[in-house]
Amino acid sequence: MVAAWKAAGLSYNKYLAVAARVVRRSLKDEPRLKAERRGQFELKFAKWENGKQQESKPLSTL
């Protein structure tokens, strides 16, 4: 049996992140604000080819 999230083409980590976000959003206001801060981050990533850094792209919440 293949799980629904896998059939939809999500990776396990992505599936977990989506689930976590849903849980955070469904909390009551006060704990929600605290919890949502944990889910936020600002990353940038860049791939390297032949010793050169390529263009860097922002990587936000999944």
Binding site: S11, L16, F41, W48, K52, T61, L62
Partner: peptide, 28 residues
């Protein structure tokens, strides 16, 4: 060692690292 690098992330260490951040790094 520029030839060995395949990927780099920046924006790490601004705040206490969160699991969500680790997850998306792992995903990439």
């Amino acid at each position: 060692h520029p030839k060995n690098v395949v990927m780099s992330f920046s924006g790490v260490g601004k705040d206490v690292p969160s699991f969500a951040m680790a997850q998306s790094i792992a995903h990439e």
